[in-house]
Write a protein that binds this DNA or RNA. Structure first.
Length: 403
RNA sequence: GGAGAGUUGGCUGAGCGGUCAAAAGCAGCAGACUGUAAAUCUGCCGGGCCACGCCCUACGAAGGUUCGAAUCCUCCACUCUCCA
């Protein structure tokens, strides 16, 4: 295929969109959640284990309820330019055949440009027009990242979707500073696009903080200069939840309808539902993987802190309505034991479940859009989670309508 | 039999006259986590209460010195080390 990336809209439900992205490494059904694999690894999982996450169980007859839905594992994951350029380094990565071959992953990969690290590692960087000078958090060595170097690295890593190099301002800084930062991001966006010479698709990033006027300007600018997709950046950086939702709802409809719309760094299951309803097609977030490692598990009836004493003798599966490896094979009591004793398997089981939960949630969302019932799906999901009886002695949780 | 060391909150272990309801770690209980410097971080952790303060019980047991003791003295019990 010659095209770097194509996007097809398959159905809509209100503002919500059901679509399909074609990449050089396969199709991606949207709306999609992309697990984060910063260092070419979704933390605690092998590539093989990652591929076993999620996926619809066979129906009684052994055939998938919906053609194609048996396929398990995410169709796309994230990598991070900043972290991979430091270790193992892009020269090595390129020599070893790119990030796909490196981690034995033949599906799509999207890389963050390092823009977020400019924000999160703020104490050791210096932003200039040309780019960002920063010191490695590992050994203190000096490095430089600019639109040109970032895009260059992402292309050499061989990712399917590269992200423009942006500046992600902190929450709470004055309008004038957000504006200055946004304008820098816009100049960097054009430079990113100009620097893209390879096969990677390139997405632009809308900034503008919580300010409608800036978001509007940014959406118009970024949406009009030829990216294959457009992202909303600069959210989930410490702002109150309401602000995030407001920015998302305001900005999403301003983005080109013909391109994938990606909300960066979000979020909770509820956020995903809200995002989809606002017209977002792609999400990524460390939440399912990080929370898994910290013992916080997402279930169809709410969050479960698996270390809680109440699960010590609980023989039931974590989520009776989840068909992931964890829920099919081990009890809450065992998961608690593994977590409390610090066993590595705790992180593996927990991550398999949380990633599966997110993937299954997104599949349910996709199906509901196709059948024009996103609102009902959302209401059912939220009422279960909100009323969520997570206690060990409760009756059977309500039937899960996700699948 | 002789010499010495020791006994602190569930555990390990500081403290050696007041600022000690008693450091720290562990264990325990709970919470947080949103483009990953995170298998991380935070809070609680003797009991009770009309709780940003008060009361009770506490540093092997009992008694004593002192305005005041986990800290000093006496005695008892137990533990450990070394010598016979």
């Amino acid at each position: 295929m010659n095209e770097r990336l194509t996007f097809r809209l398959l159905a809509t439900d209100g503002l919500a969109r059901r679509g399909e992205i074609m990449t050089r490494h396969g199709a991606i059904q949207t709306p999609v959640f992309m697990p984060v694999g910063t260092l070419a690894s979704v933390k605690s999982l092998t590539t093989e284990q990652l591929l076993a996450c999620g996926g619809a169980p066979p129906t009684a007859g052994g055939t998938p309820a919906i053609p194609g839905t048996l396929r398990s594992g995410p169709e796309i994951i994230l990598n991070n330019t900043y972290h991979l350029m430091l270790r193992p380094g892009v020269d090595l990565l390129e020599r070893l055949g790119g990030v796909h071959r490196f981690m034995n992953w033949d599906r799509a990969v999207l890389s963050d440009s390092g823009g977020f690290q400019v924000f999160s590692l703020a104490s050791i960087r210096k932003v200039r027009e040309e780019g960002v000078e920063f010191r490695s958090h590992i050994d203190g060595s000096a490095h430089f990242l600019s639109p040109e170097t970032s895009i260059g690295i992402q292309q050499r890593m061989g990712v399917d979707i590269a992200m423009a190099f942006d500046e992600c301002p902190a929450y709470g800084i004055p309008h004038a500073e957000v504006e200055r930062s946004m304008e820098l991001t816009h100049r960097w966006a054009r430079r990113s696009l100009a620097a893209r010479t390879g096969e990677s698709a390139l997405f632009g990033i809308v900034q503008g903080g919580i300010h409608h006027d800036l978001r509007k300007r940014s959406a118009e600018e970024i949406g009009s200069i030829g990216f294959e997709g457009v992202a909303i950046g600069g959210v989930s950086v410490g702002e109150p939840k309401g602000e995030m939702l407001d920015v998302m709802r305001f900005t999403a409809p301003l983005l080109p309808a013909s391109k994938p719309r990606y909300l960066m760094g979000v979020g909770t299951p509820e956020d995903l539902l809200d995002g989809v309803a606002a017209g977002i097609d792609m999400f990524d977030c460390v939440m399912p993987t990080r929370n898994a490692r910290n013992g916080s598990l997402f279930t169809s009836y709410g969050k479960v802190a698996i270390k809680n004493a109440r699960y010590a003798g609980d023989e039931r599966p974590l989520d009776p309505h989840c068909s992931c490896v964890t829920c099919r094979t081990v009890s809450r009591a065992y998961l608690r034991h593994l977590f409390v004793t610090g066993e590595i398997a705790a992180m593996v089981y927990n991550t398999i479940h949380n990633v599966s939960f997110y993937l299954d949630l997104m599949r349910g969302i996709r199906q509901s859009i196709a059948s024009n019932s996103l609102q009902a799906f959302r209401d059912a999901f939220l009422s279960r989670v909100v009323s969520g009886e997570v206690d060990a002695d409760d009756q059977e949780p309500p039937i899960n309508e996700i699948r």
